[in-house]
């Protein structure tokens, strides 16, 4: 998805009053699946639009998004570590780390 498609979707769902969370990669260290600035929208039913890389990273972001949307109702910065040995847990063997800003649009 391009930035325009992400922001258009964000506006479209906000006009309907649907809560949604925007996740943006704000910093990377080492080798990561997506670049700084990559964005993804996460909805309360767990569905997503766009991508920040897939795999475990995305699952961690989804959990943070649920906290943001359903319980804490405030922004969060999460750090995703992709250096896990041989990726046995979820296949994330990119070797890098990334910081992701998660912001609720309620």
């Amino acid at each position: 998805m391009t930035d325009r498609e992400i922001f258009e979707k964000l506006e479209e769902v906000r006009e309907k009053g649907t809560p949604v969370c925007l996740a943006t990669i704000i910093e990377t260290m080492g080798s990561t699946p997506r670049e700084v600035g990559a964005k993804m929208l996460i909805f309360t039913d767990g569905s997503t639009f766009g991508s920040i890389g897939g795999g475990c990273g995305e699952n961690q972001v989804r959990s943070a998004a649920f906290r943001c949307l359903l319980t804490e109702k405030k922004t969060e910065v999460i750090e995703v570590d992709l250096t896990d040995d041989l990726g046995t847990k979820g296949g994330d063997v990119c070797g890098g780390r990334m910081k992701i800003f998660v912001e609720p649009h309620l």
Binding site: R4, F7, L10, E11, R14, V77, F101, E103
Partner: peptide, 21 residues
């Protein structure tokens, strides 16, 4: 949100500074 989309659909390049903490 609307202003961002207006600029993007006009094909503008711009900086969006977001307060993180």
């Amino acid at each position: 949100q609307k202003r961002i989309n207006e600029l993007l659909s006009r094909g503008e390049t711009f900086c969006l500074a977001t307060v993180i903490e």
